[in-house]
């Protein structure tokens, strides 16, 4: 797609320039992590050589669209688990674990 290619070219340019000025990269990374902290994304890490298991933990307030994102057609979700247990529409920070 032309727009995607254009965006990716621009992204590469910004990232490459970051070698000279890290502060620009810090601004972008901080914006990303701010979204994550609101529950839009989850981060996990693995040790070297360990394959990412097919389970994710969500920290934050999960929005309805967020959960929908995990509906891979090939890999149906088997388990959805909320902490604290029983909270369906959490209004505070929580933890969700998906088994896929």
């Amino acid at each position: 797609m032309p727009d995607e290619k254009k965006f990716e070219d621009a992204l590469m340019k910004v990232l490459s320039m970051g070698k000279m000025d890290k502060s620009k990269l810090s601004v972008v990374s901080s914006a990303i992590v701010a979204l994550k902290k609101q529950g839009f994304e989850i981060d996990q890490v693995n040790i070297k050589g360990r394959v990412q298991p097919d389970r994710v933990i969500v920290n934050g307030i999960p929005f309805p669209d967020f959960i929908r994102k995990f509906q891979f057609p090939e890999v149906p979700i088997r388990v959805v688990r909320l902490f604290p247990h029983g909270i369906i529409n959490p209004e505070w920070k929580t933890q969700v674990e998906f088994g896929i």
Binding site: V33, K36, D43
Partner: peptide
Amino acid sequence: IQLDLLHRDY
């Protein structure tokens, strides 16, 4: 996409 790096704030 799994990245094995974390932001300090996260």
